[in-house]
């Protein structure tokens, strides 16, 4: 941890400097336009100050985004519709439900593929085909169809999360459940172990490292799914709704703060899985 502190900080500083520079470059035309219209003369200093403090900049400066995030998280009541915490929670709940459903579906499909020859031959192409469809195209369909049958709110979004997150779990778990070699399977046979015993005592524990890798990818995909699922719901609530509303009204600062909160959320979720992974594998003597 300590060794990575300095490099991480260096990269971060570099990115922030780059961001400020880009803000000046992208927002300068607007500042010039306005100055020309009002007949002001811009010095370099006033130009930079202007580009970093516009209301609807092309690229908001980091401190503008930071202020926005501060105001919409700490300074707002979390039950308020203007609170990013509220919106993040809406997205998080759909993400987590979709993740749990996706992981469950993924594990079940993987077990089917490993144990059933017919499924082995038939399911995988469909699983792969399902991921070649752009999620942006299918998400509105899922929302509309589910709405038509009376399902609305959390579940449709969770379904889209599930749709994205089951894929890495299937692929990883098929590989994981097949990771025991022929000798280990022969060994089970010499003990006359049942299929269930081979599964619980050999295949499942052997697949754990694969599972955790898949879960990390699945969690990130699940968050993307939840955000995408919020876009066609008419911008009611959630980080996706904030993004959509921001783009309707040109609120770039709002867009960027929603983006950053989404990124932080993803990092936290993947980080939590990483910790569970480390603890589990250490307990299993596999790290």
């Amino acid at each position: 941890m300590r060794q990575s502190f300095v490099p991480v900080l260096t990269v971060l500083t570099f990115l922030v400097v780059l961001w400020y520079a880009a803000a000046v470059w992208l927002n300068a035309p607007w500042a010039h336009d306005r100055a020309t219209r009002s007949g002001e003369v811009l010095t370099t200093q006033t130009l930079i100050a202007d580009t970093w403090s516009q209301d609807k900049p092309k690229l908001p400066a980091p401190h503008q985004v930071a202020t926005e995030i501060w105001q919409t998280t700490v300074e707002k009541n979390i039950t308020s519709k203007r609170s990013l915490v509220y919106h993040a929670w809406v997205t998080l709940s759909a993400t987590l439900l979709g993740f749990v459903l996706g992981t469950g579906l993924g594990v079940l499909l993987a077990i089917g593929i490993v144990y059933n020859r017919v499924m082995d031959m038939s399911v995988m192409p469909w699983v792969i085909a399902s991921q070649t469809i752009p999620i942006l195209a299918i998400a509105p369909m899922i929302i509309v169809v589910l709405n038509a049958v009376g399902v609305s709110g959390l579940l449709p979004k969770a379904m889209i999360s599930m749709y994205l997150s089951f894929f890495p779990v299937v692929v990883g778990m098929v590989k994981g459940l097949r990771s025991p070699d022929a000798m280990q399977l022969d060994q089970m046979r010499t003990w006359h172990a049942s299929a269930a015993q081979s599964f619980w005592k050999l295949r499942l524990p052997a697949s754990m490292p694969y599972l955790f890798t898949s879960l990390k990818i699945g969690m990130a995909a699940s968050l993307v799914g939840a955000i995408v699922g919020e876009l066609p719901t008419g911008a009611v609530a959630g980080l996706g709704a904030r993004l959509l509303a921001g783009s309707y009204y040109g609120q770039t600062i709002q867009i960027w703060s929603a983006l950053l909160v989404a990124a932080a959320l993803a990092a936290a979720l993947v980080g939590i899985i990483g910790i569970v992974q480390r603890v589990t594998l250490k307990r299993m003597g596999m790290s």
Partner: peptide, 12 residues
Amino acid sequence: GYVFQAAGLYPW
């Protein structure tokens, strides 16, 4: 009892 060429102990 069958002993294989590799010990084949479960690492976990």
